[in-house]
Design a protein around this nucleic acid. Structure first.
Lengths: 228, 228
DNA sequence: GGTGAACCGTACTGTACAGTCTGCTTTCTT
DNA sequence: AAGAAAGCAGACTGTACAGTACGGTTCACC
């Protein structure tokens, strides 16, 4: 079922702009930029109709070029999809900057959580998660890739923060991994699951902040030192 | 790609047993039992290869009958899948029996949570969730159906329990819905998400119990009355 | 022993898709 | 200007699948 998306008019424009930027000797090569453009377009198609529902013809049509060109950049649909997930992981990892705990642990946690949650609840990340779930049976290393970013990178940040807080005596959490899990659960709340099930829209900033405040409050009540 | 599952030998046997049971005038008719058998087999196929990966031929082969028979019971692949999800929802709903809080809220919560979590973390339910996620874009009312069970049924039980506890003065939770969300998040923890992403096997009973104990402890520390 | 409903096996139809190939055009390089 | 590299359009191949058609078979029931 080919959607009626007849040759996007912006495709040729882009092509021209690519050529120009090459004249000015920018860092990313033609190929890289074109590759990025393919990933971007393909991602939007996968988002709309899912992995199984997307066809390479659909992608190349919307891209404006020919299928042959598409296959010149990616050897298969699977490889293209993998590149999309990889790129999304990269974007997420870039968001998980390392935080150094301040004296006020509550505000440190809040700042960090806002950053983390904004990323993790966004339409893009949620849709990627859904696609990974769809493909994770056929292609288990996709979820592993995701795991390495979302769990290792994001979680290690949290663990580092909490470990430092524990060492400074701000909290009393002998089992840091467990405490991290509790915090993460409280932060994600109901909402993350609902998002994945397509049962809730992207939360507003206000909703996110309320949820984070509650999570931090519950967490600190359990793990905080009496003096804190 | 047809899997090498040549005509299950048990299919004819079953057919015979169906006929026999009709003689004895059991409640479920031929059709009902046969329908259940189809759902059961189809579910196992969907579990193995996903919705898109499963073909009706594959299902009817494994069933032992012909495709025509399959279509005599279900008008389309989608309808069959919907029946599977509906049945799984029914099974889950049956597990969420109503609990009346005892004087010991901690133990009430623990008992209820063990029941809930055992269901919700099981391979069957998790795999169904994954399939629903896969199809929820094309077929949004599948997730709604799920939502009605897992959220309304399961959650209403929790809400009822907590409301009673609040009324009895066992906890101080002016916003019951919020408290329920906190409890649910703590119970599900990391594990549920990991399960959905195919990153963790079904937890052992010991792991479940530890997680539940921690969740209840955190919850009661925050919401419990000082006297409790 | 005949009738009808359910079922069986399988061939068929129409469609859709991944991936390839070809012949042509544009654009860059030298 | 000439050759090379990349891209374009779209036809083509082979496969897989949803769903249908059909002729033959079983079997309960009359």
């Amino acid at each position: 079922m080919e959607l009626p998306i007849t040759n996007f008019p912006d495709a040729p424009e882009l092509k021209d702009s690519l050529k120009e930027s090459a004249h000015t000797k920018d860092q990313p090569s033609f190929k890289d930029q074109r590759r990025d453009r393919i990933i971007q377009v393909a991602r939007s198609v996968f988002y709309e109709v899912g992995y199984a529902g997307a066809s390479m013809s659909m992608i190349s049509n919307r891209l404006g070029g020919s299928k042959a060109t598409l296959y010149a950049y990616f050897n298969s649909k699977e490889e293209l999809f993998e590149a999309i997930v990889r790129e999304q992981c990269g974007e997420m990892a870039a968001l998980f900057q390392r935080h150094i705990g301040s004296d006020d642990l509550r505000s440190s946690l809040t700042v960090m959580a806002r950053q983390l949650m904004g990323a993790v609840m966004s339409d893009g990340v949620i849709r990627t998660i859904q696609l990974v779930v769809e493909e994770s049976y056929r292609n288990p290393h996709l979820s592993e890739m995701f795991h390495n970013v979302i769990q290792s990178q994001g979680r290690d940040n949290l663990i580092g923060l909490l470990q430092a807080a524990h060492d400074k005596g701000q909290i009393d959490a002998p089992n840091i991994a467990e405490a991290t899990m509790v915090l993460k659960s409280l932060l994600f709340g109901d909402c993350h699951f609902k998002r994945i099930m397509n049962l809730a829209p992207e939360p507003t900033e206000g909703q996110l902040h309320r949820q984070i405040d509650l999570a931090v409050d519950v967490f600190m009540t359990y793990y905080g030192r009496p003096t804190d």
